[in-house]
Design a protein around this nucleic acid. Structure first.
Length: 419
RNA sequence: GGAGAGAUGGCUGAGCGGUUGAAAGCACCGGUCUUGAAAACCGGCAACGGGGCAACUCGUUCGUGAGUUCGAAUCUCACUCUCUCCGCCA
């Protein structure tokens, strides 16, 4: 959610920023609504003030057992005017909010301009592509050959974009989750949470999925939605809170299933388990003071990278361009892991600094020098577990069709070295 | 699912139709005292929004939303959530 005062004071900068994200000049319309609303408000408040005064006087007269009928009549006359103005103010306020709540965050100055993913810029890379003396297979070929990944069974149960894993692969997935959580809680300083997978509208509004992106989500009953990421419950833990400065920074993590309708992705990545309606992800969320959010993003990125480094899998980090960033983000790094079977890089993590965009929506502040200030929020995958499984299968595959277990996972895999 | 009780500021908690934005305590901030700290004492301390260069001023807010009234934290209704007891059940 945007700061109206900022828009009032910097309409041109605001319009330019929104243009980067494909939104037309809006400041004039916003400011017009804002102006009408405030004018209405001023008149309304004067009338309310009159009404309050009269009511108080009536109270005093009545206490003295004096006649108050003329004043009562006056207040009654004020009422209809007040009701009309209230209605007008509410209409304008709603219009304003419905515009503001659908506008994406302003990109950080350091974000490259661009239209889509082709304009993203490489930030850094780590490791090397592995050499194979045979043609590396795709993850689902490996899994299906071993009889451990099954899409037909999943389709029977739930339709397309689901998967059934079993035996060693199920266990490996569990090992990956545990390894990541241990890494983040023990070494990287995040606090682990177990969270609801169903949330209310309010929470999704807070992180920015609603009101605009409801079609990307699954609903569960009348009042709940399935979480598309643990970012939603983790970030909303501090919704409507005034935090004490010494509570910050707050660093939290959780491993949850994530549910996405993939509404806009029909025909994309239909084979394999790369793009599913349900997948597991370890999420990182930080709540920090504004002046530290830039460095917190770098820190978070390094925490996410540390997983792939430990797994010894080649990856690159991309700085997303203005056109490819998510709604709430002010700056985003994607980690793209190397998949030899596909012979390409694929997103395995996305780390974003949302600035005060989400905290304004959630009304999350902290007290500093007697004043309340909006916190900054960040979130990142650390990492997507399903895609990490894919990366391991493809990078650690052997010619005979079996797969080596990455060294750091062996202790999580009953000390076995092969799948 | 049945029966009850409740929701007030950062926290605890009084108020149950008329200067109550809300007693008191804790926490927090400033000061006195002290070599320093603690204790004690004194003072300050809700949020959001409108108007104003400013001093300041006005409005809204006591779970949420409607209603009654000249006037609502206080009365009525609906909803949400929490707690206790009973039943059922991982």
């Amino acid at each position: 959610m945007h700061n109206l005062i900022y828009i009032r004071e910097n309409p041109t900068e605001f319009d330019n920023a929104m243009k980067l994200r494909g939104e037309d000049n809006l400041s004039s319309k916003i400011l017009e609504l804002d102006k009408i609303k405030r004018e209405t408000q001023t008149v309304l408040q004067n009338l309310l003030s009159d009404k309050n005064k009269l009511s108080k006087e009536i109270g005093i007269l009545k206490a003295q057992k004096l006649d108050a009928n003329t004043k009562i009549k006056k207040v009654e006359d004020l009422k209809s005017k007040i009701d009309n103005l209230k209605e007008l103010e509410e209409i304008k306020d709603n219009e304003l909010n419905s515009i503001l709540s659908r506008l994406p965050n302003i990109p950080d100055k350091s974000v490259p301009f661009g239209k889509n993913e082709n304009d993203n810029i490489k930030y850094r890379e780590w490791g090397n592509k592995p050499d194979f003396n045979f043609k590396p297979k795709l993850h689902y070929e490996i899994g299906e050959n071993l009889g451990l990944i099954n899409f037909e069974l999943a389709a029977k149960l739930s339709g397309s974009r689901f998967v059934v894993l079993k035996k060693q692969i199920s266990k490996l997935e569990r090992a990956i989750s545990n390894f990541m959580l241990d890494k983040h809680t023990v070494e990287n300083g995040y606090i682990e949470y177990t969270l609801p997978f169903l949330v209310k509208d309010q929470s999704l509004f807070g992180t920015g999925q609603l009101p605009k992106f409801g079609e990307d989500l699954f609903t569960a009953g009348e009042d709940h939605w399935l979480i598309p990421t643990a970012e939603v419950p983790l970030t909303n833990l501090v919704r409507n809170e005034i935090l004490n400065i010494n509570q910050l920074p707050i660093r939290t993590t959780s491993c949850t299933p994530c549910f996405r309708s993939e509404a806009g992705a029909s025909g994309k990545d239909t084979r394999g388990m790369l793009r599913q309606h349900q997948f597991t992800k370890v999420e990182l969320v930080s709540i920090v003071e504004p002046q530290y959010s830039d460095q917190e993003l770098e820190r978070m990125l390094e925490c996410a990278e540390s997983i792939l480094k430990d797994l010894n899998i080649h990856y690159r980090v991309m700085t997303l361009c203005s056109g490819d960033m998510g709604f709430s983000a002010k700056k985003t790094y994607d980690i793209e892991v190397w998949l030899p079977g596909e012979n390409t890089y694929r997103e395995i993590s996305s780390c974003s600094n949302c600035g005060d965009f989400q905290s304004r929506r959630m009304n999350t502040r902290y007290k500093t020098e007697g004043k309340n200030q909006y916190v900054h929020t960040l979130n990142g995958s650390g990492l997507a577990v399903g895609r990490t499984l894919i990366a391991i299968l493809e990078n650690y595959q052997m010619e005979d069709g079996n797969v080596k277990i990455p060294e750091v996972l062996i202790e999580y895999y009953n000390n076995k070295t092969l799948l």
